[in-house]
Design a protein around this nucleic acid. Structure first.
Lengths: 211, 211
DNA sequence: CTTAAGTTGTCAAGGCATTAACAATCACTT
DNA sequence: AAGTGATTGTTAATGCCTTGACAACTTAAG
């Protein structure tokens, strides 16, 4: 096991990865930490320090090769994996995520959509049909999904998560407002509260007005 | 102007606000920092320190009154304002936000939806009809929206944001992958990258597997 | 070949955020 | 009415994250 990497560093990796993808697409071959910093409004020091958590990807006197650095960070984030993923709860949010998120670019492969409402059963979202939640056990034993995107009401979240863990789910991308963190051993959780950032925007606007 | 509050503190306020809302709904009247900490998997010390940035909301020997603390944090976050808000870009994401986010609970009032595609003009999303983006100037001069939710492709984001600022927008909730931070004076920006947290989940799952 | 300019990897310093500790204060009980 | 236990507000200590600095190294030019 490698050295423990701090959450602050991990938080920044996706941003680096996105930027390197754009640069690579534009045909940029090499880049220095200084240039990266100016793009990201960060410091060269921080970028070098972050990257060195994982090993020396750069070359002294030269800089970093854009494509190979992108590849390395991609490996760290696991974008080349194809973790089978399912979405639970096909309301507006579940549907939007199914259609809007490019799972394959982020190490996942979306293989199933579930909702407990029979009215939705069979409806196509993108190229996947919604299944009834009653089929979840059969589906999991056959297809063995590893990631579950939780888009269910807060009150149902724990019960559903418990069941999914028992069926082999190893990671939750949790949009329900029930905090699953630290609940299960060996199961990873990312809680997402989109609305919180709108509240922060409100705070920032109030403050800006006061000045 | 009050003392500068650190971003770390602001980041936590929405979470406090949500928890207090639930407690209030359950009829809980008073709560101690210790109890709050156990709910939030935080420390009593941090919660007291955070709250004291804004003033002494508690009472020694007693704790905090749930409803009044909720109200105070609400004031700080500006949830009682009714900032008129518009969404630009009514693809899957824009539609999902229009339907899924309770703007009024977060200090905003959704008053307009815009898309440049004529095929979408007039279509109802919730109880609001999509307008063509060509009408944006007229709309802004009449209704004076202050918040813009940007759900447009990266390449169009800057141009659109420039125009919206000139039309009086004071805050961006930015879902485009173009970073608007520090671009305009007196305009607040919250960039949201939902996909980043899926990448972090991938990292966490890889690491959990390694152990 | 030698020198100059540029850049990384890394260690040390500084600053910021979190945690700990305690006096001041309050509610409740007797 | 006084004493006890609980809890805050606040200051100090700790620890982590970020920034600064520099040696080691690479490339390119003279």
């Amino acid at each position: 096991m490698r050295n423990e990497i701090s959450a602050s560093v991990i938080k920044r990796l996706p941003r680096y990865y996105r930027l390197l993808g754009e640069l690579s697409k534009k045909g940029v071959v090499k880049i220095s930490s200084k240039e990266l910093a100016s793009f990201l409004r960060s410091t060269a020091s921080q970028i070098r320090q972050d990257l060195n958590c994982f090993g020396g990807f750069g070359q002294q006197g030269y800089g970093y090769n854009v494509e190979s650095l992108r590849h390395e960070i991609g490996e760290i984030l696991g974008v080349n994996k194809k973790q089978p993923a399912i979405i639970i709860g096909m309301g507006n949010l579940g549907r939007a995520l199914a259609l809007h998120i490019d799972f394959s670019e982020r190490g996942c492969e979306l293989i199933g959509l579930f909702d407990s409402s029979e009215a939705l059963t069979g409806i196509m979202v993108g190229d996947i049909a919604i299944r009834n939640y009653a089929e979840i056990e059969k589906f999991c034993s056959e297809r063995e999904p590893k990631v579950a995107v939780l888009c269910v009401p807060k009150d149902n979240a724990k019960e559903i998560a418990d069941k999914l863990v028992s069926l082999g789910i190893k990671g939750f991308w949790n949009f329900s407002h029930f905090d699953l963190t630290y609940m299960y051993d060996g199961v990873s959780v990312e809680n997402v509260h989109i609305g919180d950032s709108l509240l922060r925007l409100g705070y920032a606007m109030n403050k800006a007005q006061d000045n």
